[in-house]
């Protein structure tokens, strides 16, 4: 394997740039109403695309396992809320489903 340090530094630069530039551009600036509403819609839109459809291939051998795990997260999350139990529970449920099928 070649030296990976230049690759790592290059990846770091193109990751850090997009994360930093908006802060430098937008700080202390009045934002137009329309843009503000647009920015407020970003979180939910981002999370939707980050989860779907990626989650359906999270357990490639058996997609049903990941889906069952996520079903636990939805049910428990809507019922009791919180984050730790929905997250750990989904891993446990996924593991059990994979285990039972193995």
């Amino acid at each position: 394997m070649n030296d990976l340090i230049p690759l790592i530094l290059g990846m770091a630069a193109v990751t850090y740039g997009p994360r930093l530039i908006p802060f430098l551009l937008m700080s202390n600036r009045e934002i137009p109403k329309r843009v503000d509403v647009f920015l407020k819609c970003i979180p939910a839109a981002a999370i939707g695309a980050l989860i779907i459809p990626g989650v359906f291939s999270a357990t490639p051998d058996m997609p049903m396992a990941a889906i069952t795990g996520m079903a636990f997260t939805i049910i428990f999350g809507l019922w009791k809320g919180g984050i730790i139990i929905p997250v750990l529970g989904s891993v446990a449920v996924t593991y059990l489903v994979l285990l039972s099928a193995a």
Partner: peptide, 9 residues
């Protein structure tokens, strides 16, 4: 995925 979902729920 579960983390993101639990955050948005």
């Amino acid at each position: 995925y579960a983390l993101l979902l639990a955050i948005v729920l």
